[in-house]
Amino acid sequence: MSNGLRLVWVYPDLLSTYGDQGNALVVERRARQRRLDVQRVDVRSDQPIPTSGDIYLIGGGEDRPQRLAAERLRRDGGLNRAAANGAIIFSVCAGYQILGHEFINDLGEREAGLGLLDVVSTRGEGARCVGDVLADIDPQLGLPQLTGFENHQGVTHLGPTARPFARVQLGRGNGTGDGTEGAYNDTVFGTYMHGPVMARNPMIADLLLKLALDVNALPPTDDRWYEALRAERINSATQPA
C-alpha cells in the first residue's frame, strides 16, 4: 500500500450518471501535475467503503439508484467512519442529498441520509432546474466565481452548522429561494452543480487537495483551457441567448 494520497470514487455503478466522474478525473490529474503520489479507488456498491481515504467523491444519479446508494452507504458505515477520521468529502446533487439528514426517495418517502451535512432535502413543486449557473463562492473559501450546470428538482434547506457553499447570481442552486447553492462544513461539501463542476472550477479540486494535504498553497498548473472554458461559460450565462 502506498502512503500517497488516496482518492475514493464512491459507487460509480449507482451515482455516475451525469458525468460527475469528471470530478475524480480532474482531482487525480491535478494531483499528478503536482507530482503527488495519488491512488484512485473506485468502490462499487457491493464493496465496503475504505475508511483510510483522504478525499471521497460522490456523484449525482437518478432517483432509484440514489435510494439504493443511501441504503448501502448507511448499512456499510464506512463513509461516516472516514468522515470521523477527518477525510475530505465532496458530493454532487443526489450524492449531496444523501450526505444530509434526509431526502425524498423515488417512492415519495422520506429516506434517511448519512447526517454528514446539516441539511434536509425535499422535492420541489415547480419545474426542474436545468441550465447554467453563476454563483459567488463563500468568501471564507477564497475562490473565484462558480460556474456550473444544474439539472435537478431538489430543494435543500440548511441547518445551523452548514454554511452555504455559494450564493447564486443566475440559476436556482438549493432551490429554497434564498439564493444559496450547496453547503459545507469543515470537511464535507455538497453542491447541485454538474458540468462536472471541477472541469469548470478546477480551484475546487485544488481546495480539496490543500485541505487533504493540510497545505496553504500548491504549485501552479497550466490552466489556460480551464480559463478559456470558464470565461466562455460565464459570458454565455450572462448574455441572453
Binding site: 455516475s16 451525469y18 458525468g19 460527475d20 466522474q21 469528471g22 478525473l25 436545468v130 441550465g131 450546470f149 439539472n151 454538474h194 458540468g195 462536472p196 472541469a199
Partner: peptide
Amino acid sequence: GTDTSWLWD
C-alpha cells in the same frame, strides 16, 4: 441536449 457533462463518460 444542452448539457455537455456526458463528455466525461
